[in-house]
Amino acid sequence: MQQVPQSYLGVWQRRLIQHSSGRSDSETAVYWLQTPRLFADLRIPPNSLPGLALEALSHAQRLALCEQKGFAGVTQVDADICQWHRKMDYQPVSGEEDIGRMQFETSERLLETALDDSYYEIWERLPDSLGVCRGQWLQAMDDPSRQGCLLLAGDYFLFAASRPTPLTPGGHLREKISPQNSTALLACELSFGRHHAGRAPWQIECSTLPANAGQCLLPSSIDPFAADLFADETVMPSLGSVAPAQGWRCMPDPRQQT
């Protein structure tokens, strides 16, 4: 399977999205981590939600979490066309393609334009994301339908894990949840942060789970550059806030086409 060009690797932070309708957004925290094949993308709107477990949030606060976005999968680049094949998604599967025309304004500044010109986005690469760049696709040992990945680029990581309770396709997440099922349906984790080269715990900076911000994904004893990181028996059993009962196993990268 073809790898994406070296120029795309690292963590890209979105600075602006401008829609043809006139609507724009520069406030949502958006991070796209790209490895040679796998990617993950996290989008957290500005809010004042407390850093509490899902169970401790009010139903109104849980509804606010429904505005988050996040997805992971494999990236395909053909000339100036980039397509992100989503294999897990925080929102219900829509069937729509995630594809854009890319232009490098500089090596560290990337412009993405919709094929129908309905929007454009400005992305800037985080300097500390250059360096070792790799990722591993994961599957729950006790549930083949539950997917995840751990991606690293320079000093950054992004861990993604689908929810234990799948969503039905179509619509918006807010349409799926109720006071009875919201905790289960919001338990999709995308956590982004820095690993400090193993000199300190892997600290989460932002996450789809509010209680994760400021917490640690992994302890400092886990070397992010270790060759056997993804086979480490101290990592795979308990990775993530809603880890599978029997832990994760490593899987080949998903295919591009759904």
Rank of each mutant, 00 (worst) to 15 (best):
Q147K: 15
V235G: 01
M141V: 13
P219W: 06
D128K: 13
D78N: 12
A40K: 02
R37Y: 11
W12R: 00
P252Q: 04
D80A: 11
N212V: 06
A197R: 14
S26L: 12
K69V: 12
F71W: 12
Q68I: 08
Y90W: 10
P254N: 04
E105H: 11
A72V: 04
L9Q: 00
Q83I: 06
L126H: 09
L38A: 00
Q18L: 05
Y156S: 02
A29N: 13
A114Q: 07
A227S: 09
L158K: 10
S145P: 15
E233C: 07
D117A: 12
A64Q: 15
P5V: 02
A29S: 14
G51S: 12
Q246K: 12
Q18H: 09
P169L: 10
A140K: 15
Q61A: 05
H172Y: 13
F71C: 14
R249E: 05
T165F: 13
H19E: 09
A140D: 11
D232A: 06
E27M: 13
Y119Q: 04
Q6N: 14
Y119P: 00
A114R: 03
P46R: 07
F39R: 00
P252V: 02
T113E: 01
P252H: 06
Q83M: 07
G240C: 02
G10P: 00
Y119S: 03
V242C: 09
N47A: 04
C82Y: 11
I44L: 15
G100Y: 06
C250P: 13
L150E: 07
P164V: 02
E105S: 10
A161K: 11
S58K: 08
E121K: 07
H19T: 05
Q2L: 12
A64S: 13
S241Q: 10
K87G: 01
F157K: 04
A79M: 08
L111Q: 03
P252I: 01
L173D: 03
V30P: 03
Q103T: 09
L218K: 00
Q256C: 15
T75G: 05
A114H: 05
L57E: 05
W137R: 09
Q215I: 07
V132R: 15
E124R: 09
D98E: 10
D253Y: 07
G22A: 05
W123P: 00
V11A: 10
S118L: 03
E233R: 09
L190K: 06
L115K: 13
S178F: 09
